[in-house]
Design a protein around this nucleic acid. Sequence first.
DNA 1: CTGAAAGCGCTTACAG
DNA 2: CTGAAAGCGCTTACAG
Lengths: 347, 347
Amino acid sequence: MHSTQEPRPTPVSRRRVTAAMVADLAGVSTATVSLVANGKAEGRVSTANEAKVRAAIRELGYVVDGIGSSLARGVSNTVIMIAPDISNPFFATVIAGVRAALGSQFQLLLSVTDAGQLPSADDTRRLLGLRPAGLLVDAPEPSFLEELSAPGPLVLLDAPGFGPEVPAVNLDVAQGSRLLAEHLAAAGHKKVAYLDGTTGTTTFEVRRTAFLAAAAELGMEVPAGALAAAAINVGLAATAFAEVWPRWKRDGITAVVCATDTHAYGILQEARATGISIPGELAVTGFDNLPYSMTSSPGLTSINLPGELLGRRAAEQLLKLIAGEHLETQQVTLESSLMVRGSTSDI
Amino acid sequence: MHSTQEPRPTPVSRRRVTAAMVADLAGVSTATVSLVANGKAEGRVSTANEAKVRAAIRELGYVVDGIGSSLARGVSNTVIMIAPDISNPFFATVIAGVRAALGSQFQLLLSVTDAGQLPSADDTRRLLGLRPAGLLVDAPEPSFLEELSAPGPLVLLDAPGFGPEVPAVNLDVAQGSRLLAEHLAAAGHKKVAYLDGTTGTTTFEVRRTAFLAAAAELGMEVPAGALAAAAINVGLAATAFAEVWPRWKRDGITAVVCATDTHAYGILQEARATGISIPGELAVTGFDNLPYSMTSSPGLTSINLPGELLGRRAAEQLLKLIAGEHLETQQVTLESSLMVRGSTSDI
DNA sequence: CTGAAAGCGCTTACAG
DNA sequence: CTGAAAGCGCTTACAG
């Protein structure tokens, strides 16, 4: 710690270039500078003045100050995305979609919380204090909206379980589960198991419930004891599988559906280590279609969720809300698709 | 698109609560409200007034407006982190470190660019227009600073190759390479190969150069043709390895060092598929110590880079700069460590 | 087409 | 301890 007396070094930097400085140099008012700098000159500023202002802007290196501008307009040109988990290859594709749709008019800023944690109401209020033009919230908990009053334009991503009145773009994971069940049933499996996550996330509930329903409907049995669970971790999934496999085998189970690809990697690993033939002895499916699922051996049959599209649609909806437009559909649901690979099919 | 005539629905939300409203309710001036709301009341506001203001703040749900505050103070309470690649488990740990060190005084906001792209100078200028209290830049290109004038408090992360005058926290990947070389030399390897990345990133250059130097020093040979390269992708790495392996084998190579764990996964996969014994026939090492390296089979010997610490140290340095303090060390380098697992050692 | 002026919400010397 | 007032940098009716 330094004493307060010690003089701070004067910043070497040139002082901030303001619209007033540009106006002085160009010989116009700041109103004119503002018009030109914001691309609103058309029909409101003489071409002569516009040229003078542009020259001055270039000479001084003027950039409109976001803070001053936001205060005057009441809103910033920022879109804030709140996300609980960024350490996820899927998330990067969502971001790419958001960025693509947002274009250059709005600046995308991410607010992340510690692994799996949702932002506190305080955090969110502070974020709102930055006056974002809009808010994107990924995988929020059901209680998220209660803490928020007057959030402004807002679109939820991957948020099943919210009322139809809140704009959201969702992934049809239930449909993914059905596709998996149909695929296995078509291959002749009669007894199947399910390896769930342990976090109790809504999407996991939906994945499991929809699979069990579809399996029953298609005449496949999920015997008692054929439901296991493990955290999202290859090693833990392997261990959990090793524990239940003898019983599953005895019960005549020939296929297992995993809540995530990561769980499935654990099974593939354990099967390799102990010589279980995949898919001959046991067919395995994942969920999420992570990049590694394409190159693992065997390749992993999985459900592809359209991440890029999820981000894009959400941003498009948000853009409409920001523009004050009406949304034809408050809730959009995106289809998932089945990727068949070696883990379920010998081809 | 809607016509401009159409009336926009009046926002249902209560209007923004301002300091003036709080002042009215409490019967004090906005100056007093500001002092209390910012925790600067101590010794400057009577306890009676402080209590009145606190009550009013609670009643109205007042939150200091970030934009107004930033404009008045000349700087926001935001720290912006610019990062080129978030789809990386390593990055999540870096963020966790940053958040831990930053505490609650500053709001961390991430600005990400499309995969592997650095932010344009324009983007960065717009970011600076938000008047962040400080800037954290992860893995910038050497030219990054040239485009920036007067960036304010700034700390670089994982940025080898910048002058000693710019504050940075770096990872000692060269040391990691040496550890790998020593480990292999100690195990008696005489002829070793290197599987590089193809992106030409600075860190890859350093990894390779340092390994080759250490290998030579320790009396290990890297024969001509024992340098291969592949993109950071399991499948592509497997293919690249399959192509060179016959020659490597003929040349008597008994160990291969990979630029990333992902490359090593490709080799493990190909080895499994074609029956190459790891580590008996070929020892394999990765770099980065990704989570999966602990649970793969065999486990992957790798270099652990301290991500959490990287984030934490960088944020600590930035905090000092923001406080106007002097940095004892402008450049901090963090040690990496060797994780020995089954891919190099039979135990 | 143009500029003077008000106002966005806050903070901070300043005078009392 | 307190409040009136200036000022942060910009945008936008408004009057001309």
